[in-house]
Design a protein around this nucleic acid. Structure first.
Lengths: 216, 216
DNA sequence: CGAAAAGTTGAAAATGGTCAAGTACGGTGG
DNA sequence: CCACCGTACTTGACCATTTTCAACTTTTCG
């Protein structure tokens, strides 16, 4: 799997290196911690375990031949990831920040404590919706959709921290970091959001209605 | 479901009208025919039946708020469609040409003659691959990918008919008909394909290697 | 404090969309 | 059989959006 090295070279801190976790024992279903930036699984690894996020956030991405990274999804608490079509992963999963994960072996057991079909269908519906959004919406609209997704993960509060970098957001929305920054600026100067804090990663939703209107 | 009327207005021949099929009886698993252009199911309909194409071709699409149509997938012989996350369809299925379809009820039965999880995971993997392709590739590359997909459905021959219109292809690739036509022209003038027949829908792959190189 | 990383901004270039015109084809009716 | 019409497809010119490239600011971290 030559793409693994590209992935590490391009996207992981040099110090992190190839620290993708070795395979967990299928029958040991104890939760475990992953540090920020650490790999959870990588392309080509055997896919006989799925994960539920207990705390933290995870990015799942694929690498294209030219080395470009495309983030398929971010996962937060309660959400499942790692379910695969074939016996091997065709994507990468990494912790965005410190995470607690619950693994579930899907090898052979006739009855699982989770509904795999439900997870697969939820993922499928999400992937199809995302396809529409990414292909048909403008840069500003995509960023608005992203912002609304993030806001919806923090119900009851109108201010939160983005755990991911602008580069992550760009690779998630199919844009460049520059376009993401420009869209952030537009949202800010039009009074829809306010940005502050470390690396402008703290967001306050000022005009939720205008945001919703943009992200439709 | 107001979008149904939009769909019919925009995309079906006027004579066809609202001819989406009434629900089949779950237990009757007899194959049936659908005429070209006819609807198979529509958004909002109950989703308790999945279909396997026996002959012909089907398009499955969603409609956006603004009325734009996005084709999620084309389905040919042997392929399954109609499996849904919730109890209701969020998309439309129509016959592109005359079709023979095999329905399978998925209501309640503990054991089905088909592997739903497998179908869901295959669809998911396909949707994710398509996301990368559509978001990251240029117009020409997308058309090349499409052409290769179509060519791969006709193994052993290097000439075949496109059953779908340029508009279908555009809505599938996230382009306009004009961009599709221009990309077809580029492929033709660079000696990769040749076009002829009714509405330039017959394709001969002249340089399969060049096509594969473009579509990677 | 200084270097590296992350984020923002501006100007030029490329890509695809829009609008408009023109061509080819198939079906209908005289 | 041919003229006509509508649809599908193609092509050209122009325009809008996003990318690219470059510079600059801010933040983070040793």
């Amino acid at each position: 799997m030559t793409t693994l090295n590209q992935a590490v070279d391009r996207h992981l801190p040099a110090s992190t290196g190839m620290d993708f976790m070795e395979q967990r024992k299928p029958t040991s279903s104890t939760a475990f911690k992953v540090r920020a930036g650490q790999g959870i699984y990588c392309e080509g690894q055997r896919a006989n375990v799925i994960y539920q996020v207990q705390s933290g956030a995870v990015r799942v991405y694929r690498l294209m031949q030219n080395g470009q990274r495309h983030i398929l999804s971010f996962y937060g608490p309660e959400e499942w990831f790692g379910l695969q079509d074939g016996p091997f992963h065709d994507d990468f999963a990494e912790a965005i920040c410190d995470c607690q994960l619950q693994p579930f072996s899907i090898g052979g057991l006739p009855t699982l404590p989770v509904n795999l079909l439900g997870i697969a269908l939820t993922s499928l519906a999400y992937a199809n919706s995302r396809q529409l959004m990414i292909v048909r919406q403008s840069a500003l609209e995509r960023v608005a959709v992203f912002m609304k997704e993030m806001a919806d993960r923090h119900p009851g509060v109108n201010e939160f921290e983005l755990v991911m970098s602008r580069a992550d957001i760009a690779d998630y929305l199919g844009l460049t970091v520059e376009s993401v920054a420009r869209s952030f600026t537009k949202l800010r100067t039009s009074g829809i959001i306010r940005l502050h804090g470390r690396g402008q990663r703290y967001v306050r939703i000022v005009n939720a209605d205008a945001l919703a209107a943009l992200s439709m």
